[in-house]
Design a binder for these strands. Structure first.
Length: 510
RNA sequence: GGGGGUAUAGCUCAGUCGGUAGAGCAUCGGACUUUUAAUCCGCUGGUCCUAGGUUCGAAUCCUAGUGCCCCCA
């Protein structure tokens, strides 16, 4: 919509076609330049809006008269109401809002006249005494006021704010200026990640935060198509990581015992309300633990998170109540498929022909090379996944689709693996790790065969990972938790784009 | 990949049957020392997403394309 303006400005042209509102503000900026420094950086604050609101919440006007302090605040002017020689300003800073009381006769000569030319959106700073107006609004009564940074572009309308989703995502800075809800989502996101770090490192758990490579010579650790890039000096194809798993387990071989990483993964797949090409995962590995320990820890973490972020253990998501206070159900893949497909007999669950028939009925794409395990998961995805609303651990995934997981002691066709589903979405994936190097090598070979047969999501053979396992990896359990989807749940956000500061968008200019 | 929705002033949105492009807020000019979406008076502001087509005439109808949103695969 404003493409012409943007191209004109980036090209450094005279903005002849720039809209009048911007042209007027640019004229004011030119006047400021003539008067001296238009972008001063000398003003210093000694408090914030939020701190003032908190400190003086219970003080009336009389009590405030006894406060013999000068408060310096700075931020964006969000509203400006001028009444002759008096004006009120709503100042927004990093942690809240505070009203400024601007009186001509309390300010140095000429300041009030200049102030009258300033615009909503400008960054200003001022200082003065704290007071409460006749209507009871806590205010800083200014004895000093400066324009710190001129805003050339008008803000969205004050009452409706910015609702256009495209502009909210493309110009997140505008969204953050005008939409309190948006700011709140990203504060909570930060709170969630802080909580997780503290939880993982708390006494008794003592996981060590580590950083492993984002660029891999061999992509591994997940069934996903990678982004490819190129290292010039080495003349080498590199892949943005789809998962940190194989590196983190090398650290377990190295004896670090308990490690975690919170960082981005990249998957070259479709984009939707639940998928962004880059997304954030918590991934952790725990020596001398198994997948049951992981499920217990996950429950405890999510319960604590809900309580910390929302203040209660029941999470309200898109009109549904999700109880994080109760133990989560645990249910095998087989059981879950049977529950949602009552026509199926037990024997059918591992019958390739029956499963293929079900897929055909539902026009689910299958490959001739797929075994019962893969087909069973296709049926699970189609008939079960989106019905798993209350938190539930789905366990015992087929070995065929779990090339890095330890086989179950009683049934080698399934693994000691689980996925946590909440609100019909996969939130976490964890398992007892496969630490038998010979079994792992065999699984890699099967993956390579699948890749050769055309499965672009199949894994590569990672020689060094096998070499690491051959040194001996302790019995270990490991898990990945999708942070973005977790933030969606805890902030009641319908789209992953609402919890990413800068979600992926097509480039603006063609 | 398929389907549906949407695109009009800086923002939020109207726009009838195809007949000169509208409102609120913001801006601009004026009044105002207690406002809270301040109020009052006055004036402005448009590539109706893009390109074609139909028509005497298109924001409106048709075709194609593009961005965004949603659903499905």
């Amino acid at each position: 919509m404003s493409q012409d303006q943007n191209t004109a400005e980036t090209a450094g042209q005279t903005p002849e076609d720039e809209n009048r509102l911007i042209a007027e503000r640019r004229g004011k900026l030119n006047s400021l330049r003539e008067l001296g420094e238009a972008y001063p950086n000398g003003f210093r604050v000694n408090t914030t809006a939020g701190a003032l609101q908190k400190r003086f919440a219970d003080d009336d006007a009389e009590a405030l008269e006894g406060v013999d302090e000068s408060f310096a605040v700075a931020g964006r002017m969000m509203a400006k109401r001028v009444m002759g020689k008096l004006a009120f300003v709503r100042l927004q800073d990093r942690d809240g809002d505070i009203q400024l009381m601007v009186q001509r006769d309390q300010l140095p000569e000429g300041v009030f006249a200049a102030f009258k030319t300033w615009d909503v959106g400008d960054i200003i700073g001022g200082s003065g005494a704290i007071t409460r107006t006749n209507k009871g609004e806590l205010s800083v009564r200014l004895s000093e006021l400066h324009l710190l940074s001129k805003s050339l572009r008008p803000l969205p309308e004050k009452w409706h704010g910015l609702t256009d989703t495209e502009q909210r995502y493309r110009q997140r800075y505008v969204d953050l200026i005008v939409n309190d809800d948006s700011r709140e989502v990203f504060r909570k996101r930060s709170q969630i990640i802080t909580f997780i770090r503290q939880f993982m490192e708390a006494p008794g758990r003592e996981f060590l935060e580590v950083e492993t490579p984002m660029m891999h010579p061999i992509p591994g650790g997940a069934a996903a198509r990678p982004f490819v890039t190129h290292h010039n000096a080495l003349d080498l194809e590199m892949y943005l990581r789809v998962a940190p798993e194989l590196y983190l387990k090398r650290l377990i071989v190295g004896g670090l015992g308990r490690v975690y990483e919170i960082n981005r993964n990249f998957r070259n797949e479709g984009i939707s309300t639940r998928h962004n090409p880059e997304f954030t995962m918590l991934e952790f590995y725990w020596a001398f633990a198994n997948y049951n320990d992981l499920m217990d820890l996950t429950e405890e973490m999510l319960r604590g998170l809900a309580l910390t972020v929302t203040g209660e253990t029941v999470v309200h998501y898109q009109g549904v109540d999700l109880d994080f206070g109760q133990p989560f159900a645990r249910l095998s893949v087989e059981q879950a498929v049977r529950d949602h497909n009552p026509d199926l007999a037990d024997a059918d669950l591992w019958n390739v022909d029956v499963l293929r028939g079900i897929c055909a009925e539902r026009s689910i794409h299958t490959e001739q090379s797929w075994g019962a395990g893969r087909l069973l998961m296709e049926v699970f995805d189609a008939t079960v996944e989106d019905k798993l609303v209350a938190p539930v651990f789905i366990t015992q995934f087929p070995t065929e689709v779990s090339p890095l997981s330890r086989r179950n002691d009683d049934n080698p066709e399934v693994t000691d693996r689980f996925e946590l589903y909440i609100a019909g979405r996969e939130i976490a994936n964890g398992f007892s790790e496969l630490n038998d190097p010979e079994d792992q090598a065999e699984r890699f070979r099967n993956q390579v065969s699948a890749r050769d047969a055309g499965d672009q999501e199949a894994m590569y053979f990672d020689d060094d990972y096998i070499r690491a396992l051959e040194y001996g990896m302790p019995p270990t359990a490991g898990e990945g938790i999708g942070i973005d989807r977790l933030v969606m749940l805890l902030t009641d956000s319908a789209s992953i784009r609402d919890v990413l500061l800068f979600p992926y968008m097509r480039p603006e200019h063609s």
